[in-house]
Nucleic acid binder design. Structure first.
Length: 590
RNA sequence: GGGGUGGUAGCUCAAUUGGUUAGAGCACCGGACUGUCGAUCCGGAGGUUGCGGGUUCGAGCCCCGUCCGCCUCGCCA
């Protein structure tokens, strides 16, 4: 070992001991006769003192130290003089009087320092990720990620789950996200697909009899990125055989409870609250609402139908909805100009406009469109929204889909702008009974809302022939602070039902046999009822770290264009490699 | 593919209506300093204003194109 102690562990109790520490030069303060150097490693910082009375070699060397040099220092632990302890440092009671100094690696002048309070732009940070990762807060997150992952493994291990690896090179299946493809050298013109999730493998593990499976599984989806989405990400993948939905919910409740206890030392109230999909859509306009604050959506169909405002009235006549929300005490917080900006904001979600009212009194509204509403209607709106003087009311009149999207986005934005919640709170809940299928207007066909292996609610099965949009899935999402934090379902274990579902979403029996034949075949050989779930590990780290960007919870993340600025991936390859793979490039001219 | 936003010294930022030699703090280099901990003080060096074109007597600033980062819609079973 090149050290006897880390930079975070020396205390007054070590006084008088000769120690060796090693780390990076975090700061240096050169007073000529005396030089202070803070050495940093992942455990903390320790102040090293170089004194004129020491050997001149060491002293001269010390004066040449610069940021990020890696050094090894041997010396004696001393108490700091009276009144000079540094309360900001855990090791602030002591310093090490250096006797020997070895520069293990001299650093070039770094483009930025790890302790910088004003973060450099992200491009630079990602390009020099080895420096960025030295930042204490990023190190803290990566360490917490490890603790979370370990707690997950411990929890499932205690419940007799087996961690089983599944292939990274698999086969492409229809439906779902765009696959990342890997060309086969041995099979010209054929490709492996990287897994979007281990879904089919884990179902087959159930059929094989490994009735409790989990895996910290890397998944790949070739879709556009977001602040909470990376092309490769990690799922806590779980599957159980001989269980019902309730068993999964309880098992995962226990996991969340464990994580909150382990990572925060707190208790979370269990069981976690449960909502139906229909309920959250009606109350919040989203299938993953942020439940840290209220501001629920209100339908004013009755008033809209009879009021004098043409936009509201005609929307109802066309089968649309008029819904709104009450922003408590915000009448004076938003100027006309700011409301115009909110109007532009909701237009991004398809809304044609945003109606607003300031509540002037218990019965009176103030708005450019107030004249279209009778005194009676104004009073009704106030009553319906439960509003009081000084509130601000917003309404969107549009299709059900657009009112949901626009109002949910507006609610989320206002909640943040108005600080309606504690940003450090972790609010977790279940959303159950998603619809099985959604009509794809573009492709004119039904498609699976969750995935095609999900079991419909038994009593809804007759609806296949009458009203497929109403069929509920035996599915469940875990939502947390406005994110989808987990998603799962009871699976189909009857090949006939599976065949029928494929058929319904437009996969012909021949096609199904070709692409999913292995699953259908396995279902014919004694498939137990099974169910499972996958939790987004990266997102849970975001929650527990109170971090709003997924790149900050991943050691080596990719940019929005899916590039790795550290390594330069993706990059072109030798023509020989392409020949081996029987691939010719037909890239668009730039 | 669409919308928004940013790119000026190594870094973080500034630069009035288009107008003189593009500034500051930190970092870097040289010097001073025995108790600092965002050390301080003195001095110095450092710029193809992302890139390409255009308008203009004159462009960091205006116009067109393009590249890159970020946010977002679509997309993400």
């Amino acid at each position: 070992m090149l050290r006897t102690h880390t930079c975070g562990e020396l205390r007054a109790g070590h006084n008088g001991q000769t120690v060796t520490v090693a780390g990076w030069v975090d700061k240096y303060r050169d007073h000529a006769g005396i030089v202070f150097v803070d050495v940093r490693d992942r455990y903390g910082k320790t102040q090293i003192k170089f004194d004129l009375s020491d050997s001149s070699d060491v002293q001269a060397l010390a004066r040449g130290l610069r940021y990020e040099d890696v050094i090894q220092v041997t010396g004696m632990v001393e108490p700091r003089p009276e009144g000079l302890a540094n309360p900001k440092l855990a090791t602030g009671e002591i310093e090490v009087l250096a006797r020997e100094l070895v520069v293990l690696n001299k650093s070039k002048t770094p483009p930025f320092e790890p302790d910088t309070s004003a973060l450099p732009n992200e491009e630079l940070r990602l390009k020099h990720r080895f420096l960025d990762l030295r930042r204490p807060d990023l190190q803290k997150t990566i360490i917490m990620r490890h603790q979370l992952t370990k707690a997950v493994r411990d929890y499932f291990d205690e419940h007799q789950f087996l961690e089983i690896e599944t292939p990274i090179l698999g086969r492409s299946t229809p439906e779902g996200a765009r696959d990342y493809l890997v060309p086969s050298r041995v099979h010209p013109g054929c490709f492996y697909a990287l897994p979007q999730s281990p879904q089919l493998y884990k179902q087959i593990l159930m059929i094989a009899g490994f009735d409790r499976y989990m895996q910290i599984a890397r998944c790949f989806r070739d879709e556009d990125l977001r602040a909470d989405r990376q092309p490769e990400f990690t799922q806590i993948d779980v599957e159980m055989a001989f269980v019902k939905r309730e068993d999964i919910l309880q098992m995962i409740d226990g996991l969340i409870g464990r994580l909150v206890t382990t990572l925060q030392g707190k208790q979370i109230k269990l069981p976690l609250p449960r909502y139906s999909h229909a309920e959250v859509m009606e109350r919040y306009g989203s299938d993953k609402p942020d439940l840290r604050f209220g501001m629920e959506l209100v339908d004013i169909k009755e008033i809209a139908t009879t009021c004098g405002f043409g936009v509201f009235k005609s929307t109802i006549e066309k089968g649309g909805r008029v819904r709104g929300m009450r922003v408590v005490g915000a009448a004076e917080k938003y100027s006309r100009k700011q409301i115009d900006e909110l109007t532009e904001f909701v237009k991004n979600y398809g809304a044609m406009g945003l109606a607003f009212f300031r509540v002037k009194s218990a019965t009176e509204l103030d708005s450019p469109i107030a004249k279209f509403f009778s005194a009676e209607d104004q009073a009704k709106i106030i009553t319906r929204l439960g509003a009081t003087t000084g509130d601000l009311l917003f309404f969107v009149a549009d299709t059900p889909k657009v009112t949901n999207a626009a109002l949910a986005a507006l609610r989320s934005r206002l909640g943040k702008e108005l600080n309606l919640y504690d940003p450090t709170e972790i609010n977790v809940a279940w959303v159950l009974d998603f619809p099985m299928y959604a009509w794809n207007e573009e492709e004119q066909r039904w498609e699976a809302e969750h995935h095609p292996f999900c079991q419909p609610v038994e009593e809804d099965i007759p609806l296949f022939d009458t009203d497929p949009g109403k069929i509920r899935a035996q599915s469940y999402d875990l939502i947390c602070n406005g994110y989808e934090a987990a998603s799962g379902s009871v699976r189909i274990h009857d090949p006939a039902v599976q065949q029928r579902v494929f058929n319904f979403i437009g996969i012909t029996p021949e096609h199904a046999e070709e692409r999913f034949g292995f699953l259908l075949e396995s279902l014919r050989f004694g498939a137990p009822p099974h169910a499972g779930i996958a939790l987004g590990l990266d997102r849970w780290v975001m929650m527990f770290g109170n971090i709003d960007n997924i790149r900050d919870v991943i050691a080596f993340p990719k940019t929005q264009k899916a590039s790795d600025l550290l390594t330069g991936a993706p990059a072109d390859v030798d023509s020989k490699q392409l020949r081996d793979l029987h691939i010719k490039i037909d890239a668009p001219k730039t």
